[in-house]
């Protein structure tokens, strides 16, 4: 079977997706993804010259727009209710510059 992605590729995809994939899981994940990507082959074999894409089903329906009227929304308290950590009405996160010394 064609090797579509290497373990190194999968590591990079995981970094892009912000998933800290364990080294032990890398070989199996790489094998699974190669199998799935192989199964996508029919997509690459179609003659699609001149075929318009459909990004959304039932494309001939138009978007439904509403008037731009202010309505009640989440309070700050409600917005923070599920936050793992909050402080002074804000979401609390660790340093974004890395190393913990920022």
């Amino acid at each position: 079977m064609t090797q579509h992605v290497t373990e190194r590729d999968v590591r990079r995809m995981a970094e892009y997706a912000r998933i800290g994939l364990a080294d032990d899981d890398l070989p199996q994940m790489t094998e699974d993804l190669n199998n799935i990507i192989e199964s996508l082959k029919p997509i690459t074999e179609y003659d699609l010259e001149g075929v318009e894409p459909t990004f959304h089903p039932i494309g001939d329906l138009s978007n439904v727009m509403r008037d731009d009227v202010e309505t009640p929304s989440f309070t700050q308290k409600e917005a923070l209710a599920n936050a793992p950590a909050a402080q002074d009405g804000s979401f609390l996160i660790p340093s974004i510059l890395g190393g913990g010394d920022a």
Binding site: I19, I93, S95, I96
Partner: peptide
């Protein structure tokens, strides 16, 4: 200690 490693560990 940093947000990046928190993202990755939380989603993993």
């Amino acid at each position: 200690a940093d947000l990046g490693s928190q993202y990755e560990a939380s989603r993993a």
